[in-house]
Amino acid sequence: MSGIIEVKDLNFGYTPQSTILKALSFEVIQGRFVGIAGPNGAGKTTLLNLLCGLLRSKAGSIKIDSVPIESYSARKLAKKVAVVRQEFVPVFDFCVAEVVSMARTPYLSTFGFESDTDKKIIDEALEMTDTARFASRPLANLSGGERQRVFIARALAQNTDILLLDEPTTFLDLKHQVGIYDLLKRMQLEKGKTIVVVTHDINLSTQYCDEILLLGADSSYQYGSAKDVFSPHKIEKVFGVRGFAGKIGTEKFFLPLGKFAKDAHIITTNINSTTKK
């Protein structure tokens, strides 16, 4: 079995006085699609950085495939966990194929060049993410959505059991948001990858995620199926926002409403009415 994340009694703060994550425990089963949600400053990206070994926890443990994360060398961990951060433009003009080929670094020897097997894996990753057609274009000349797919292709070529993503759809339009989630779902279903995605999108993550970890600003947390965790009541409590919650077919949705929304008066009185139907 591989691709399992176990977090137990995790505590973390950036200064000795502060605590962002407190007594956090959860387990991600192999091949599941998990969303990490919560308001700004709740520690979502911090948790992601802990899960990929970039930060070290003060107390508590993180185990990847039953081995404490501290026991992995950077190189070994890079064969277990791949990270996709928010897309950016690199300083120098690497083309798409070059960026994706960097994923093979943990597998290369000194004076490393990619073997034929490496190249096959890179080509597959480019194909699956539909980035092969602009493989020779510089990363800087792509749109935000295309760049994000390139970084996902890189993570795929890293050939890890676990894939962590930090808000992969933040700057994308609707079509590309759905496209990215579809791609991630395919990677889960076809390749059996464990996927953990930090997200602000309640509706898409309800559709795609098997489990949700909802972090509160007060270091509280909820972990469970998306449909349980994203109840209108909990959303209101954690995010401090009210809105319409509803269901179409089997899909639940939540539509946040601000104070100045035309229908704001309806939800201030009865938030749960629509979901109970």
Partner: peptide
């Protein structure tokens, strides 16, 4: 320097990215 040149490629993406790709930055 040539022997670490493939790691230099990744370092140009920043420390976080490089660590994620297994480079002891």
């Amino acid at each position: 320097l040539f022997s670490i040149s493939h790691r230099l490629n990744i370092l140009t993406f920043g420390q976080e990215e490089a660590k994620g790709l297994g480079v002891d930055t």
